[in-house]
Design a protein around this nucleic acid. Structure first.
Length: 816
RNA sequence: GCGCGGGUGGCGGAAUUGGUAUACGCGACGGACUUAAAAUCCGUUGGUUGAAUAAACCUUGUGGGUUCAAGUCCCACCCCGCGCACCA
């Protein structure tokens, strides 16, 4: 009785064996093999454990890592835990345990799940961002920002999540809601630590040219940074000895500026508002402040505004134009003031119509005269610039105004500086001490890390103060500079801090003298391939590029960019096409499927076979049954081969099949077309069954070659069964250290080929001909074919097209 | 509105430079095995007409075009997903 394929009896065995042999350990300074760093995003150890998204990401990463290893690379495929942050803190508060304890628990749980996947991760380099030995260096790196004036404090209006009770970065607010908990954010003015990411706006855009990111990722980052070139123009006030500066990307429309609009928060508002308008302006400003971000940013809302009663002078033509305030102008972008050109800007147009303000067309183009158009054209009503193409006038006007000192070129960014303070316990303490005499003083290196004190109460407060503020014996300290009484910073870092540099730590995970040895940083260099979620494009991915670019400027890292190539895996949806979510109860747990008896190999295959890796696609619950069946067929075939006494002859069909499949799988792996690689393996298996049915295992030598080849091609995807059968076939070394099969072009051609015969573009038949037959031979055969002859007889063949080994096409027409 | 993807059987999805559309898998149907079921194996499976595993016609979101030949190239349009969005 033959053994049945039973993943449970082979998978844990090999997982243990691989760990014991340290099969996947990356070697520092290995000069014999090219290095390859395969990075996937590290998980957050929440109580829910690994979900389908993790499964997809880590399986893909593992497939690539295993393939690279078999191709002779020194592969670093590491993993760690990103463990600071709100979910753990909330869990800890709810269960009345310390976040440290909650993290231990969750990590242990996830580690068990990880072990069951059969990943080739080098666990010797693992760490958690919450390890003091790790966050010591997160703090040290923060201080590098501080020492170079890249971290600063400012009293700013920030987005505040009233549910999580913390300030947020702009990147964490989606449609006016906190991306984690969906609570509508509020504005709060707090003294915050900020990082000058805007200093790197250009570098973050330009650096994209030197890396290999898909355009949707690069475009999204460029979009988010939002660089726009324009000019700042000063408008003198008519009745005050002052001026207002506006930002515009269309200085060519300056002659069409018929009013000015200030943001309600603009500092000039109070000064310029006339007595008659004061009451109205005040109530408008108050009403604006009462609005939520969602209300304020709704572009479909009717525009509202109030005149200040004051006027400004247009520097190009001396026109006296009214100054209004309106909440569609944002204080946080540009100068908080705009020149309104209703003829050439939709928003200004809408506003002008509503309040009956003048509209003046200054560019002539195909749009009707009374329409609003932002298209280019020729200048009109613009003095000396009349008749000039608008694109040309755009630069000329600024240059001319620059000479008069009332304008200058200016580039603005949508990107804002990164709000870096969080009013929570479970994060890295910001290593700053406040001294009455010396202000904000960095904690000296030899006193790092500033560890989190153990406390009774982790609950965040409503006041905007971190719970750490209540731990007075921790807060009160001495000034490192003068030794006088001083207080610690009580805010912590956002959970994005630890993940902004973690890849570098894998290069030297246990170093306590530096965040990593420069020689190791030099050896491993850029991450070769970084796989992660699309949702991190403008969060983690952008943040970590910023940190890295800054480190590069400080000489701390050897490469200008952290990641050579980035790929984003698609989301796996529930079977009905909706998002998997706990609240909907439609979450599919990969670990449960593995444990149900399908095994990790079938699960890995199912996920990779489902769709192209970067495509969002619904989970198909029956798919894993299909891949399990496929693996069982491979299992059975090998065992049938072993149970017979195979002959010794060779067979060219088997060899061609193997080399064709090797070519296909190899190319698919390079292009990350994993789903079609699996289908090629399935096709090969189906073919092998057909050949076996026909001739049995007579051609034993070729069979062994074909089966071993099949297992090697399968090894990156289904490592356990490949290893088991590989040993059963008599091999003495792991399949995962074997050399990836190479294909030989000379074996790819079979003796005969099928050529399709077309008449007037329609397929009318096919012929099996010797490979590489020439046109005349094939045409002759085709014409002998009864069916083809029927189509040709009595007609004139006007043209014949022949594509070798593919098709022969006759163009015929009736003879007259 | 702007940017980026995408629309192919009942479903997930295949289709080098334009060259047999629907590979592979799922599901479904029929059969074998079984007391029965599960598992497994074999066969069928885009649509219409047809007794047919004869033949013909139709079919890759819609409408045009180029070509011997179009899922693929060109023009116009419709729909879906993702990201950004009163950013001047």
């Amino acid at each position: 009785m033959m053994k049945r394929y039973d993943p449970k009896s082979i998978e844990p065995k090999w997982q243990q064996a691989w760990a014991d042999q340290e099969l996947y350990k990356a070697i520092d300074f290995d000069t014999d093999r090219p290095k390859f760093v395969m990075l996937t995003e590290f998980p957050y150890p929440s109580g829910d454990g690994l979900h389908m998204g993790h499964m997809r990401e880590y399986t893909l990463g593992d497939v690539i890592a295993r393939h690279k290893r078999m191709n002779g690379h020194n592969v670093l495929f590491p993993m760690g835990y990103d463990a600071f942050g709100l979910p753990t803190e909330n869990y800890a508060i709810k269960h009345k345990i310390a976040p440290q304890v909650a993290t231990d628990r969750n990590v242990a749980n996830i580690q068990k799940q990880f072990d069951a996947l059969g990943s080739s991760i080098d666990w010797t380099r693992s760490f958690r961002t919450t390890d003091p030995s790790y966050y010591k260096w997160t703090q040290w790196l923060f201080l590098q920002f501080f020492k170079h004036d890249m971290a600063y404090q400012a009293e700013v209006d920030i987005n505040w999540c009233p549910f999580c009770k913390t300030g947020l970065a702009n990147e964490e607010v989606v449609n006016g809601r906190h991306e984690r908990c969906d609570t509508i954010v509020e504005k709060k003015t707090l003294n915050q630590w900020m990082l000058r990411i805007t200093d790197y706006a250009d570098r973050l855009i330009d650096g994209l040219q030197t890396v290999d990111y898909p355009s949707r990722i690069a475009d999204q980052q460029i979009n988010w940074i939002g660089r726009s070139k324009g000019a700042e123009v000063d408008f003198r006030l008519d009745d005050h000895d002052d001026s207002v500066t506006v930002f515009t990307t269309r200085p060519d429309t300056l002659y069409g500026a018929t009013f000015i609009v200030l943001a309600p928060e603009h500092p000039l508002v109070e000064e310029i508002t006339t007595e008659e308008q004061r009451a109205e302006v005040h109530s408008y400003v108050k009403a604006t402040q009462a609005k939520t971000e969602i209300e304020r940013q709704d572009a479909n809302r009717d525009k509202t505004g109030v005149a200040t009663g004051s006027h400004a002078i247009n520097p190009v033509n001396g026109a006296k134009i009214p100054i209004w305030i309106a909440d569609y102008v944002l204080m946080g972008y540009g100068t908080g003031a705009i020149m309104a050109v209703p003829a050439h800007d939709e928003r200004d147009f809408e506003f002008a119509k509503k309040y009956e303000l003048p509209i003046m067309r200054v560019i002539k183009n195909e749009a009707p005269d009374d329409a609003c158009t932002h298209e280019e054209g020729r200048m009109i009503n613009s003095g000396d610039y009349d008749d000039m193409p608008s694109a040309e006038a755009r630069d000329k006007i600024v240059k001319d105004l620059e000479k008069k000192g009332v304008a200058k070129e200016k580039i603005n960014y949508r990107l804002r500086d990164w709000i870096f303070s969080r009013q929570h316990y479970w994060g890295e303490p910001i290593p700053i001490i406040y001294c009455e005499h010396h202000g904000a003083v960095p904690v000296p290196d030899d006193q790092l890390p500033v560890t989190l004190p153990e406390v009774e109460n982790y609950e965040p407060t409503d006041t905007g103060e971190s719970p750490l503020a209540a731990i007075t014996d921790w807060v009160n300290t001495t000034c490192p500079t003068c030794g006088g009484p001083a207080k610690r910073e009580t805010d912590t870092m956002p959970n994005w801090a630890g993940s902004s540099w973690y890849y570098l730590r894998y290069y030297d995970a246990h170093n306590n003298k530096a965040f990593a040895d420069p020689k190791k940083l030099e050896y491993w260099g850029e991450v070769d391939l970084y796989l992660g979620g699309m949702e991190h494009t403008t969060l983690h991915l952008l943040y970590s590029r910023f940190w890295h670019q800054f480190f590069y400027d400080q000489g701390l890292v050897p490469t200008p960019e952290p990641y050579h190539a980035r790929r984003g895996q698609g989301i796996i949806l529930a079977a009905d096409g909706s998002k998997m979510s706990k609240s909907k109860g439609n979450v599919v747990n990969p670990t449960e499927i593995i444990e149900a008896g399908y095994g990790a190999d079938a699960m890995r295959l199912a996920i990779v076979f489902l769709a192209p890796y970067d495509q969002t696609t619904p989970w198909s619950p029956e798919g894993v049954g299909g891949t399990h069946r496929f693996l069982a067929r491979v299992w059975t075939l090998v065992h049938e081969y072993l149970a017979t006494s195979p002959g010794k002859t060779e067979d060219t069909q088997l060899r061609t099949l193997l080399h064709k499949t090797t070519k296909k799988v190899t190319e698919d792996l390079h292009q990350m077309n994993f789903n079609t690689a699996i289908s090629a393996l399935m096709e090969m298996t189906n073919e092998l069954y057909k050949l076996k049915a026909k001739d049995g295992f007579a051609a034993g030598a070729s069979w062994k070659e074909a089966l071993q080849g099949l297992l090697q091609l399968l090894a990156p995807f289904a490592p356990h069964i490949a290893e088991e059968l590989w040993y059963e076939l008599g091999n003495k070394q792991s399949i995962h250290t074997s050399e990836w099969p190479i294909f030989d072009e000379t074996y790819l051609k079979s003796d005969t080929t099928t050529v399709v015969i077309q008449i007037n573009g329609k397929v009318r038949g096919q012929l099996t001909v010797p490979t590489d037959s020439d046109e005349t031979a094939v045409a002759k055969m085709a014409k002998k074919d009864d069916k083809i002859a029927e189509y040709i007889d009595g007609k004139e063949v006007v043209k014949t097209i022949y594509v070798a080994n593919k098709l022969l096409s006759f163009v015929v027409r009736d003879e007259r």
